[in-house]
């Protein structure tokens, strides 16, 4: 561990490499987290199947790519498929959880995640997968820093999607309906907004966002049917740090997490990278709660 620290000290370019890679993957985290915050803020449900949505999006796009579809087609395809899945899940499961104890929704969406994992493993195989990409890389500082062009494309597309979504929420009529329901569901329903449809739109939209994030991520990062939970936990952690409905905060927290994770993976060893993510989650929650406690409050 200390030797790895020493390497970082002697080769600062390596640190730069870790930071850049962290920022690039951070955009994928940001998109999934933004979707989670949306569902959480509007329906008061924490979607534990968030990571499985991302994984499914990735697997669909890999399947599409294997059949010769280009990236600009596989991403909307995955988003559309996930939108349909979100709609289906909403009317079969989520609709019964609205207004119920949060524990029920956490458990039920955990159930959805478990079902999805094994179904995905059956349909797509349980192996780690990545879509073939042929864009190559840029090389800097005597080849000490290598930036995959595909990762840059994924980064830009994720940020672009996030901004589009924020614009949709603030400008379009449907987006305004979502925000109205999030703030005052009773008032919104008196004004003739069908809250259930808005909840459905929110949940399906979130699934589509995750699908797109997964489809983009699959071109540069590994996708695994059982690998969803870490994305869920990352999303949750980012939302806890950034707060609900704050895209700027979500992006900063997500990029920060990406960088921190990469450094931790290098310093502690990659086998501890996931442990670091979960450990960081606990640390973040404990720290936030400790600060609140001093004001006689607590995380609730």
């Amino acid at each position: 561990m200390t030797s790895n620290l020493l390497i970082l000290y002697e080769a600062p370019a390596l640190g730069l490499q870790l930071a850049i890679d962290g920022i690039l993957i951070g955009a994928v985290f940001a998109l999934a987290a933004y979707g989670m915050a949306l569902v959480w803020g509007v329906t008061n449900i924490i979607n534990v199947a968030q990571g499985e949505f991302v994984m499914l999006g990735g697997l669909i796009s890999i399947l599409g790519a294997e059949h010769g579809l280009p990236l600009w087609l596989t991403v909307p395809l995955a988003a559309a498929a996930l939108y349909a899945l979100g709609w289906l899940l909403f009317y079969t499961v989520i609709v019964h959880l609205l207004g119920r104890d949060m524990f029920n929704s956490v458990l039920a969406t955990f159930g959805i995640a478990i079902v999805m994992q094994q179904v995905m493993a059956h349909v797509f195989g349980a192996a780690d997968r990545i879509a073939a990409s042929s864009l190559g890389s840029w090389f800097f500082l005597d080849n000490f820093v290598v930036i995959s062009k595909m990762k840059v494309v994924v980064f830009a597309a994720c940020i672009g999607l996030g901004l589009t979504l924020a614009w949709f929420l603030s400008r379009s009529r449907k987006g305004q309906a979502i925000r109205a329901v999030a703030q005052k569901p009773e008032a919104a329903s008196i004004l003739g907004i069908e809250t259930r449809k808005v909840y459905c739109l929110t949940y399906s939209l979130n699934a589509a966002i995750c699908g797109a994030a997964g489809a983009l991520a699959a071109t540069a990062y590994t996708i695994q049917p059982y690998g969803g939970l870490s994305y869920t936990v990352r999303s949750f952690m980012i939302v806890v740090v950034a707060g609900l409905g704050n895209l700027g905060g979500v992006i900063w927290a997500a990029l920060g997490l990406g960088v921190a994770e990469n450094f931790a993976g290098f310093i502690l060893g990659t086998q501890y990278q996931i442990a670091f993510v979960f450990g960081l989650l606990v640390a973040v929650l404990v720290f936030r709660n400790w600060r609140l406690r001093r004001q006689r409050k607590h995380l609730e």
Binding site: F103, V282, V286
Partner: peptide
């Protein structure tokens, strides 16, 4: 145990997996 509700739920989930 100073956390409540879903924060406690997800935090403990994280502990188990970590």
């Amino acid at each position: 145990l100073t956390m409540r509700g879903h924060y406690f739920a997800i935090c403990t989930l994280g502990l188990g997996i970590a």
